[in-house]
Design a protein around this nucleic acid. Structure first.
Lengths: 201, 201
DNA sequence: CACGTTTTTGAATTACCCTTCAACTCGCTG
DNA sequence: CAGCGAGTTGAAGGGTAATTCAAAAACGTG
């Protein structure tokens, strides 16, 4: 029998298990037994903690998003120069490769967000927060005279996040020539004309 | 009893029905009975034409993509001025609203493409063709001296398609402030600095 | 270390969906 | 207009997954 755990610990385990199960089978293809298997439990135990599977799935998506965002903010904190910050942030928004679990999870939401309002709200809120993150970098750079913005920072920030998103999809779909490095270069090409900075490190 | 139809007619009906069913339930959530209902038939009849449901789903996705792409090419043909072509093409790559069925269908593929190679290939090929479409417009404009490109046309074209994709997701996810018109403006903002053309019509 | 509570199991039940197939219907053709 | 082949139905079956629940196991506590 699986080792017994406290309520909150087990719930965290299950959220993690659900995350993996979603990546493997898709938001609409995942089933109770998949989650149970990932967690090393029986379906009954999963149901004991989450009588409603969809609720668990939403929590898993939420946790995955939160983790992704926090990770980006944390990496950002190691730098002070706006140009460095910008480059680092672009990198941290892209998957490390086709199998990157965090981006895979977010991508799963894309289609479902059109059908399910809850997922739509989650994804939209992540997008907006990422935009704010970029906007802060751009505004700081402009204030310091490092950047000469080609249009308002909100527009540029929205486009940068949009580019990340899209290349995330391309990479996880295994585009034969667009990998993480190529995607960074493509986004940087826009960032350069948008900031008037050559962004070389 | 549903009116009897020829083999090829019925297959077209089913592809259309599958398209609708996918939009409604997701690639991984769609079931035989959903397709049958959309087509006004029983599951048995669907199975008679497509013994394997996944094959029908792939055909539906393929048809949807093809239609989307052909539509864009067709609209493009009505214009000669590269600047006009560019603006029209940007518009035609975005959903008309959150419910746009063509874009909804494509978005469904995003997540599945990470798990399913066939969907990955489909989506990648659509992306590449769209890139070529933009590249032709950009190259022509540059050759005519209308555009002064800020980087190579391939890079710009890739970014333009990427932006379309991403805003397609935002719009179908019902972003409260980014609708079709706002997305066009955002993409145009990039297109302007990339082409050195003000792109006003 | 025994008791009560919480967690987990495993099996039984239920619900759902795919699959098969014999019967039936329709439209065509001779 | 009879007969044939293609298309469709509806019901029966088989399998799989969700759900329920009594019993068992693990843990904390007194």
């Amino acid at each position: 029998m699986a080792k017994r755990k406290s309520r909150s610990d087990r719930r965290l385990d299950l959220i993690e298990a659900a995350r993996k199960a979603i990546v493997r089978h898709g938001v609409d293809g995942v089933q109770l037994s998949h989650v149970a298997e990932e967690a090393g439990l029986t379906s009954g135990a999963v149901l004991y903690h989450y009588p409603d599977l969809t609720e668990l799935l939403v929590e898993a998506q939420h946790a995955g998003m939160e983790r992704f965002y926090e990770q980006r903010v944390r990496r950002l904190a190691d730098f002070t120069d706006p140009a460095e910050k910008l480059v680092v942030t672009i990198r941290s928004g892209l998957p490390t490769g086709p199998l990157d679990p965090d981006v895979r999870l977010l991508n799963e939401l894309g289609g479902a967000a059109g059908r399910n309002r809850v997922y739509g709200v989650l994804l939209t809120s992540l997008y907006d927060r990422q935009v704010s993150m970029y906007q802060a970098i751009l505004d700081t750079g402009a204030a310091l005279g490092v950047f000469r913005l080609s249009s308002d920072s909100l527009t540029i920030a929205r486009n940068l996040v949009a580019l990340e998103d899209a290349y995330g999809y391309r990479i996880t779909a295994r585009h034969p020539v667009i990998g993480p490095d190529e995607a960074v270069e493509l986004i940087l090409s826009y960032a350069r004309v948008a900031t008037g900075h050559d962004l070389t490190l």
